[in-house]
Amino acid sequence: MEVTRRDTMVIGGAAALTTILPSLSSAAIPVNELIMGVTGGADAATSGIDLTAPEIAENGNTVPISVDAPGAVVITIMAAGNPLPGVAKFKFGDGAAAQAATTRIRLAGTQDVVAVAEMADGSFAAVSKMVKVTIGGCGG
């Protein structure tokens, strides 16, 4: 098959469509809105917090994630596309050697996972990461 310029545009359109569709269908809360909900409207820095999550999760039932925000007092984790976005809230005490944690979470579908850190000085940092959740053939 010879790919014409017109075909290329169609391909581009299809690609755009596939990226938009998941967020439309899952009625996800905008990431920014979730972040503002934690910060009370204050701006959050985009550095100072790391979120590790798989790009593709083999099963949405058990998705390993890690957060790390040096100097944080609280780290809130949310899943924008879940029926209830609140996942967990880690408060770190004096006994913590690092403001970091790993856990396993449920994701109801492909969506953004959001982490917001509240620092000791009252400032915030936030990060989000898209996790694609696959629909299994036989495994799922």
């Binding site: 809230k89 005490g93 006994g95 913590a96 970091a100 944690a101 790993t102 856990t103 449920r106 994701l107």
Partner: peptide, 28 residues
């Protein structure tokens, strides 16, 4: 989790934490 009464972490958990909850973290 606390060490000798000093808090390491205190986690509020929602329904999106997986079956058989797992946590890993660092303490002094």
């Amino acid at each position: 989790c606390a060490f000798n009464g000093k808090t390491v972490v205190d986690v509020e958990m929602g329904g999106a934490i997986s079956t058989n909850p797992y946590f890993s973290f660092d303490a002094v």
